[in-house]
Design a protein around this nucleic acid. Structure first.
Lengths: 139, 139
DNA sequence: CTTGACTCCGTATATAACTACGGAGATAAG
DNA sequence: CTTATCTCCGTAGTTATATACGGAGTCAAG
């Protein structure tokens, strides 16, 4: 046996990689096809290896997805990472930032509405008009 | 002008309804099939009519979708509205609230990361390590 | 009362994002 | 070396969310 933390995420085969990222192998391959993940070099007819940064990338994709970004949008976000095309990346980032801030506003309205609903429900134990639709409408 | 919107939105046929909500007719019917919208009574072999509350409902669905909720989850949210099953609704609302708060946290981290990225990009005009992945990873 | 746009409804097709399958080759444990 | 388990890769199937199509009925204007 070896060191524990970081060395656990080195030299992973695609199976352990997938498990570490909480997705299945097919999803990894699918993401590679979409350009969301790079396919590492294959050592002469052998088997590709992955590491912690790949795991992080998949986790990022999954998180961004939960926030309503499509895989294509996420690919855009990830392209910001490479540091080249700074001008372009900056533009894209600003655009996404606007996006993110709108989502934030919606979510905050939704949070308020839900919190009120829970409150009202507990308080009155009766009929309550749902403020939810209204919440996202005021925009 | 605050009532203007509403008074324009009475007695709509499905076509004008769809236009008002910014979706197409087929989407309306699809949502009816999924239980996201009620199908109004059809006046003896005639044509159904819709109003502003239907439009609001569709707009809510679309907003919630942008926030990463699935149609099934949105159906859950909408079921909170009817005021019956208060106990159950309250439970559901609490669960969704947790959800919403997690998304909020992720989005805020993402906002920070994007803002930093734009900033750094403008400042250095050079290579910048992307804080994005890191942002959503710290959870 | 005809005409053209619209509705109704059922079925079919499309797109995104997976998920499953299967045969051939690689690797590790015994 | 054998064998079980995995990887590789290509193709096919699935689920969620729409969109498109088409024939028959309905409505409102001329």
């Amino acid at each position: 046996m070896e060191n524990n933390l970081k060395s656990n995420l080195e030299n992973l085969t695609i199976g352990t990689f997938a498990k570490a990222a909480g997705v299945n192998v097919e999803t990894i391959r699918f993401y590679q096809g979409k350009g969301l993940l790079l396919e590492p070099e294959k050592p002469y007819g052998g088997i590709r290896r992955y590491d912690g940064s790949d795991v992080a990338r998949v986790l990022f994709v999954k998180s961004a997805q939960r926030l309503g970004f499509s895989l294509d949008e996420i690919a855009d976000l990830l392209r910001l990472e490479d540091g080249t095309h700074c001008e372009e990346a900056s533009h894209l980032a600003e655009h996404k930032l606007k996006d993110v801030r709108e989502k934030l506003a919606d979510l905050m309205r939704m949070e308020t509405a839900l919190a009120e609903l829970v409150c009202a429900c507990h308080a009155t134990n009766g009929k309550v008009a749902c403020p939810l639709i209204n919440a996202l409408q005021s925009n």
